[in-house]
Amino acid sequence: MRVFVAGGAGVLGRRLVARLVARGHQVTATTTSPGKVGVLESLGSEAVVMDGLDAEAVGEAVARARPDAIVHQMTAISGKPDIRHFDRWFATTNRLRTEGTDHLLAAAEATGVPHVAAQSYASWNGIREGGWVKTEEDPLDPTSTGQGAEAIRHLERAVVAAGGAVLRYGAFYGPGATDAQVELVRKRQYPVIGDGRGHSSWVHLDDAAEATVLAVEQRARGVFNIVDDEPAPAREWLPHLAACAGAKPPMRIPVWLARPLAGRTAVAMMTEGRGFSNAKAKRELGWQPRHPSWRQGFEEELR
């Protein structure tokens, strides 16, 4: 297949490009940085510098590549996590999930691309009611990440309506994915808030890339949670992450203090967050994560 990976130079994009090439696909991968062209070419893909927010540029890049499938991996997440000011931290990513999605889908329609797969998110943002683990049938929480929640809803509605696949990845870990978080943990600037019973789901970068390849090759349709086998509360995974990183145990702070210091998103994540089930992805894609739990995964990556 000819596969167009928009956002191929990111931490997941690079692994995805390498896997697609290894399986014999012809890959065109995009980056916003001319300095990353060589990285993409070294992986065996054709590299294109493209601004995902420029509709004309997106249309021209897709038309030149003539792909059989488009994979939307465009984000703009970098630097120190700023969960307190989540909307500001995610402002460009939110645009890529709205405007950027629309540009890719328009280009796909104009050039007759039959399949689109797109990155979404499913770590702790399940609807905050009922049980702690959610399936694809359960809605995402509409207020979990501020403006980001609406951007995700826009992406998912648009891609599903176009007959594509939405891949709801859990929180990434693996080389280059958690460096900023680990730095905060080592500085004891990443506390457990309240009772820490809010659940999250994780996924190793390599497992996320493998699931994406399967979705592309099978031209999957609908929504899939791409997470490991063990959704877990913050009071379990965060101390384990600290131990694997050789750090002191995280501090614990009450909710009333965390609200002004860390913001409502951090409080919601650690006290009310809902994790996700991967049963559908296993059943319909035939996907089996090689890192079934963050417990062993953190140890392998950090020790």
Results as ranks from 00 to 15, higher is better:
A161I: 02
A161V: 06
G163N: 06
G163T: 06
G163W: 06
G164S: 07
V166P: 13
V166I: 11
L167D: 01
R168T: 10
Y169K: 12
G170T: 11
A171E: 12
F172W: 08
F172D: 04
F172H: 12
Y173C: 11
G174T: 12
G174E: 04
P175D: 09
G176D: 05
A177H: 08
A177R: 06
T178K: 06
T178M: 15
T178E: 11
T178V: 14
D179Q: 07
D179L: 10
Q181H: 13
V182Q: 10
V182Y: 09
V182D: 10
E183T: 15
L184M: 15
V185D: 00
R186W: 04
R186M: 12
R186L: 13
K187H: 14
K187I: 02
K187R: 15
R188L: 10
R188W: 04
R188K: 14
Q189F: 01
Y190E: 13
Y190D: 14
P191K: 00
V192T: 03
V192H: 03
G194I: 05
D195L: 14
D195T: 14
D195H: 14
D195R: 15
G196E: 01
G196I: 02
H199L: 08
S201D: 07
W202I: 02
W202Y: 13
V203T: 12
V203D: 05
H204N: 11
L205V: 15
D206V: 11
D206T: 13
D207H: 13
D207L: 11
D207R: 10
A208H: 04
A209I: 13
A209N: 11
E210P: 09
A211K: 05
A211E: 01
V213Y: 05
V213M: 09
L214R: 09
L214K: 05
L214I: 05
A215Y: 02
A215D: 05
A215C: 11
A215Q: 05
A215V: 09
V216Y: 04
V216H: 04
V216K: 03
E217D: 14
E217A: 15
Q218K: 15
R219S: 14
A220T: 07
A220P: 06
G222L: 06
G222P: 13
G222V: 12
V223K: 00
V223Q: 00
V223T: 13
N225Y: 02
I226N: 09
V227G: 12
V227A: 08
D228T: 02
D229W: 01
D229G: 12
D229R: 06
D229P: 12
P231N: 08
A232K: 00
A232V: 12
A232Q: 02
A232D: 11
P233Y: 00
A234E: 04
A234V: 01
R235C: 10
R235M: 09
E236K: 11
E236M: 10
L238C: 09
P239Y: 00
H240R: 14
L241A: 14
L241V: 13
L241Y: 01
A242W: 00
A242Y: 02
A242L: 04
A243K: 09
C244E: 03
C244D: 01
A245R: 01
A247M: 04
